[in-house]
Simulated assay, not measured.
Amino acid sequence: MISKWSEWKRYPRAGKGENIEAPISPGIYEVRFAGTGALHSFGAVDNVAQALALLPVASKSWFGRGEPARLPELEYRTCATSTKAAAKAAAERMIGRRETYMSGAA
Rank of each mutant, 00 (worst) to 15 (best):
E7P: 15
S82M: 06
G43Q: 03
A106P: 04
D46N: 15
T83W: 12
A34W: 06
A14W: 13
I95P: 01
E67T: 14
A49T: 04
R77M: 03
V45Y: 07
A49Q: 15
A85F: 14
S25T: 06
W8Q: 00
G15A: 11
R70P: 08
L74A: 05
P26I: 15
R77P: 02
A89G: 01
R13Y: 00
H40F: 05
T81D: 01
A105N: 02
S25A: 10
E7S: 12
R65G: 15
S59A: 06
F63C: 11
L54W: 13
R98V: 09
A53Q: 13
T78Y: 05
P56L: 12
K88W: 05
V31A: 07
A69V: 08
P26W: 15
S82N: 13
R10C: 03
A69C: 13
G66R: 05
A89L: 04
T83P: 07
W5V: 11
S25Y: 07
E67H: 11
A44S: 08
G17F: 09
N47P: 06
S82Y: 10
N19G: 09
P12G: 05
K9V: 08
E30A: 14
A80E: 07
S3Q: 04
V45F: 11
A85D: 07
R10T: 02
V48A: 13
Y101P: 00
L52V: 03
G96T: 11
K4N: 12
M1V: 07
L39A: 01
S6L: 07
K84R: 03
L54I: 12
G15K: 10
G66W: 00
A34C: 07
T78E: 00
L74D: 08
D46Y: 15
M102V: 04
R10P: 14
E21I: 13
T81S: 09
N47D: 12
E67F: 08
Y76M: 10
G66S: 03
K16E: 00
S41H: 04
